[in-house]
Simulated assay, not measured.
Amino acid sequence: MKVEIWSDVMCPWCYIGKRKFEKALEQFPQKERIEVEWKSFQLNPDMETDPNKNIVDYLVEAKGITTDHATQMLDNVTNVAAEVGLDYHMEKAVLANSFDSHRFIQFAKKNRKGDAAEEQLFHAYFTEGKNTADHNTLIDLGVKIGLDAGEVKSVLDSNQFADDVRKDIYEAQQVGARGVPFFVLDRKYAVSGAQQTETFLGALQKSFQEWEKENPAPIQTYAEGDSCTTDGVC
């Protein structure tokens, strides 16, 4: 059964949601029959990459809130992240347009490394304070997950996978995603936001129960012995 997750690299709740969903999946008895696919979403497509501007200043300008309010928001999400084992350093976050990082994820998905790419990008952005729009940063992250540096560079230097990113963003509108993280299970049930592990587990159980009725597990051979076949061989 497929679980699609729409996410953006710069979304702090997406990383938290990833951890909570992973914990639910660990507890799910049929986890080997779950396929997870990460989908692209941009919270701010027009954002200009600016390593010299901190996230507090961005929130003050973009949302029209006070510095104290912005700081309080970041402290809150940092504390929630810590509860699931994540070490956020929002003061180091680099404002970066996420389009190229999504192209990088699409390339990683093609090589069956989509989840690893998401993990590395989240860690780079929220913990290490790296510029996730910088091509050299993305190449280094690609090498970490086993991708070829030359191939990653070739992708980033071109316009490859741009249409894949746009397709995911369009699909997000079709399934009702207005924000991220947004989880869609078997294209039947949606879970919006970084819900509790128990909520994810319940959604997995309900959707899988219905999916399994239409997709029963193949019969596995327990033992083989002497027999006769339809062609008359015994």
Rank of each mutant, 00 (worst) to 15 (best):
G225C: 05
G150I: 11
Y222Q: 11
Q173M: 03
E48R: 14
S158V: 04
K110M: 12
K113S: 09
I5V: 15
K188F: 07
A24S: 13
Q42I: 03
K20G: 08
F183D: 11
E119I: 12
D164E: 15
T199M: 11
K18F: 05
S154L: 13
G232W: 13
G17E: 00
L138P: 04
M47E: 12
R166I: 08
E26I: 14
A96T: 07
C11F: 01
L43S: 06
F208V: 02
Q72H: 13
C228F: 09
N52W: 05
L25Q: 07
G179F: 01
T127H: 07
G225A: 04
V233Y: 14
V191W: 00
Q195D: 01
E32S: 15
Q205V: 05
L86A: 07
A116Q: 15
L156G: 06
A194S: 08
V143C: 02
P216Y: 03
T67D: 14
F28K: 05
D134S: 09
V180Y: 01
F122D: 01
L147Q: 00
R19H: 09
A149D: 04
K213C: 07
G129L: 00
F107C: 02
V56M: 04
E32T: 09
K153Q: 14
D68E: 15
E22D: 15
Y222V: 15
E151G: 09
H89G: 07
V60G: 11
H89N: 14
G129I: 12
R166D: 11
N44F: 01
T221L: 13
V84Q: 06
W211I: 00
K2P: 14
L147T: 08
L121W: 08
C11R: 01
L25P: 03
S158C: 09
Y15C: 01
I219S: 11
G142L: 03
N111E: 15
L95C: 03
G64D: 08
S192E: 04
G142F: 06
A223E: 09
T230D: 10
A62M: 10
K206T: 04
D163S: 15
E22R: 09
V180Q: 05
I105D: 05
D75L: 12
